[in-house]
């Protein structure tokens, strides 16, 4: 169906359901209230809950955990006096011969590059937000974060590690190394970080910014 041509300016009070395109007047929500779509029952709107300070603290902790998880081996495995340890990069590299680097690249991207990029962008954005400013490159930074969202796989990796080690228990002796602490930290922190309501970043009113004629009313 062709869209009806209209010369009227945008109606700032509208909200559309991301799941079914139903249109509603933007509701005013109390704390703990959630608006649901009448047609498909998905969440339409939640009250804002983004806190820049908490986000900065969370992302800096995640950065620290990331360094530990990648600079130190995760586990040591010993068999007949012969000892081996592995890092996340080591696991990715073990795939490189067979797959011509294809799977290695995917593993490095989902376990190393994307999580690191996500953490660094969060530090960058929330650091400036705490100071009441938008970071340089704000648009690109937030768009990148939103695009990256489904592609970090550290939680899947943690379960894989449990499966791999369970296969080795009884055959070889397994001991944990410093990297394990960092990995556990990341598995806890990354879901919290990914749970950030990124779209709220666009709604924040900042002191040093002149009033935006296009911004939606706070109601």
């Amino acid at each position: 169906m062709p869209s009806a041509p209209s010369s009227q300016p945008a109606r700032p009070g509208w909200i559309l359901c991301h799941h079914c395109d139903a249109a509603y007047a933007r509701p005013t929500l109390q704390r703990n209230e959630v608006a649901r779509c009448e047609r498909c029952n998905n969440v339409l709107l939640k009250p804002p809950r983004l806190q820049p300070q908490a986000l900065l603290a969370l992302s800096l902790t995640a950065l620290l955990a990331f360094c530990f998880a990648n600079l130190y081996p995760i586990v040591n495995v010993e068999l007949n006096g012969d000892s081996r340890s592995t890092t996340i990069i080591g696991a990715a590299m073990a795939l490189s011969e067979t797959s011509y680097g294809l799977v290695t690249a995917l593993v490095l991207a989902t376990l190393l590059l994307f999580p690191l990029l996500e953490i660094c962008l969060m530090v960058w954005i929330s650091g400036f937000l705490v100071a009441g400013k938008r970071c340089p490159g704000f648009h690109g930074a937030v768009h990148t974060l939103q695009d990256l969202a489904p592609w970090g796989m550290l939680d899947v990796f943690a379960l894989s590690l449990a499966v791999a080690l369970a296969k080795l228990f009884g055959i070889a002796s397994v001991s944990f190394n410093v990297g394990m602490v960092g990995l556990i930290g990341l598995v806890i922190l990354m879901p919290l970080l990914s749970n950030t309501p990124l779209h709220e970043l666009w709604d924040l009113r900042l002191v040093d910014k002149e009033p935006d004629a296009l911004a939606e009313p706070a109601s």
Partner: peptide
């Protein structure tokens, strides 16, 4: 579903005990 690929990667990285046991990834990983 990336689980099995990560498991194979970890096993191939860890199990490299020459003379006793080594594990290599197969083409199905790709």
């Amino acid at each position: 579903s990336m689980l099995d690929i990560f498991v194979v990667a970890l096993l191939a990285a860890i199990v490299q005990f020459r003379g006793l046991a080594t594990i290599q990834p197969g083409l199905a990983t790709v």
